[in-house]
Design a protein around this nucleic acid. Structure first.
Lengths: 179, 179
DNA sequence: GTCTATATCAAGATAGAC
DNA sequence: GTCTATCTTGATATAGAC
């Protein structure tokens, strides 16, 4: 909304850009500060440690993803497998923003796996909700794993799949849920 | 076979151990040398750069995985979806060795994504073989993505799935192929 | 709230002895 | 084939001025 985002937001955006463009291993405070157009001292005022920056990065992405998921859920009509279908459709429309979430997870896992505890808890929660709604556990596992596999192989640069196959995969997942 | 493996093998084993125990970010030449019980100079005689070490790590894992896949293929009876079924069963029995492959891919992607080109080519090749054998592309994509998703989320520490669910997932995948 | 130092340390890599 | 230096760089983090 505001023409220039707050320093905090600018820093987080810059950190994501650095990861996207140079890889998680090159995520340095220097690089982030330069890109956010402030000094390293200024950066460290907002995020006193690199871990703090990584945690904020992850939390922001998780919150965004959750928001999208909630909206998709509200749009999806009642019926068996409703939550799972909303999950698939939300993911199918998520595009390159999904990479930002995957990147944040990857970066956190590299530098400090403990930061992932909340992400892991959220994943488990989602899975439990699917099962509670009546989906078979192995079916829910199949679908969530397929989604994660698609994104992570793409993120790591080993995916042979393009956008056409992604759409076909979404359709296949929906078919699976409805059958 | 030999009581003490060659230096080269010992170094690669040590590198994998270091990644497994401390994370890819802590994969340093010092740590590898110490664990392999030789000096950094000695290590650098065998692998002149860190990239060379990473590449060797990845290639060894890919070769091992390929060997297992070939054996599984030989054991699987003829019939529709044979190759895909062999792939699923080979993976299902692969256990913690799969983590070593995933780890090598992850480490390579962090330090130098270019090292992954051969892995990517292999993945694409396998996928094309499935399709050439008559499997629907979206079905083959679904199955390979599900497998990759299972392993990578587990490797990153965000997987809520245990071994029981893994077996259920294998069964579900086979069912999908046979239907 | 942001800056300029600077301290401290660990990493990858090289040179040359043995 | 393996060792002990050593070089060089780049990283996180701190201290204190503005």
């Amino acid at each position: 909304m505001s023409p220039r985002p707050s320093s905090r937001e600018r820093i987080l955006n810059s950190a994501e850009d650095v990861i996207a463009e140079t890889g998680a291993i090159h995520l340095t405070l220097d690089a982030v500060a330069e890109r956010a157009e402030l000094s390293k001292g200024g950066l460290l005022y907002h995020f006193p440690t690199k871990d703090a920056l990584l945690e904020a990065l992850l939390q922001r992405q998780l919150a965004r993803f959750q928001e999208r998921a909630d909206k998709a859920m509200a749009r999806t009509p009642e019926g068996p497998g409703r939550r799972l279908r909303a999950h698939v459709l939300s993911w199918g429309a998520y595009d390159e923003r999904m990479d930002r979430l995957s990147m944040a997870i990857l970066a956190a896992s590299i530098y400090n796996p403990e930061l992932l505890e909340s992400a892991c808890a959220r994943y488990r929660e989602a899975f439990d909700e699917f099962v509670a709604e009546g989906d078979q556990p192995e079916r829910a596992a199949l679908i969530t794993c397929a989604i994660n596999g698609f994104w992570f192989t793409r993120l790591l640069g080993v995916s042979p799949f393009g956008d056409e196959l992604k759409q076909a995969l979404v359709a296949e997942l929906v078919r699976l849920i409805d059958q």
